[in-house]
């Protein structure tokens, strides 16, 4: 029933696979929630500082890739007293199983959270068969 598998790879393995970013900013693995209902799979990823124009959802060879770029705060004329975070890129990919209706995938960006809805393919949805009495 699992429609999604997450890639868990060691850092070195990941580096060998994924092309490196050209931007000289740190890249993060966003925290995600993945859950499914009978009809859909939902992915929510925390990407603070990313607006809808700087986010990309890609599906290629069954790999769903989420990419987001956050623009660093302009701190001109200020002295940085405490650095709790550094704005950067968010990248994460997941292996999708075949049973997702690719045409129906929808993504939305709100309050720094990327939400993706992946409808399950119709034939994979559980069907209730009513037994008729004779």
């Amino acid at each position: 029933m699992t429609a999604i598998n997450t890639q868990t790879k060691s850092a070195s393995e990941k580096d060998a696979r994924a092309p490196e970013q050209t931007r000289n900013v740190p890249s993060y693995t966003p925290a995600v929630d993945i859950y499914e209902t009978d009809t859909d799979v939902f992915v929510a990823a925390d990407m603070p500082g990313v607006d809808d124009k700087h986010v990309e959802v890609n599906l290629e060879n069954n790999v769903l890739t989420l990419t987001g770029h956050s623009t660093p705060d302009t701190a001109e004329g200020y002295t940085l007293l405490r650095r709790g975070y550094v704005a950067g890129d968010y990248i994460r990919s997941f292996n999708l199983s075949e049973d997702v209706d690719r045409e129906g995938i929808k993504a939305q960006m709100k309050n720094g959270v990327l939400r993706i809805r992946l409808p399950k393919a119709k034939e994979k949805q559980p069907r209730r068969i009513t037994v008729e009495s004779a």
Partner: peptide
């Protein structure tokens, strides 16, 4: 340590930025 904050300041003003994704 949530939310993560950056604190910047000059002689007249301090600016605090905090990452609070998904919060209304």
């Amino acid at each position: 340590d949530f939310p993560s904050v950056n604190v910047m300041a000059n002689d007249n003003e301090s600016v605090v930025t905090a990452e609070v994704p998904g919060i209304d």
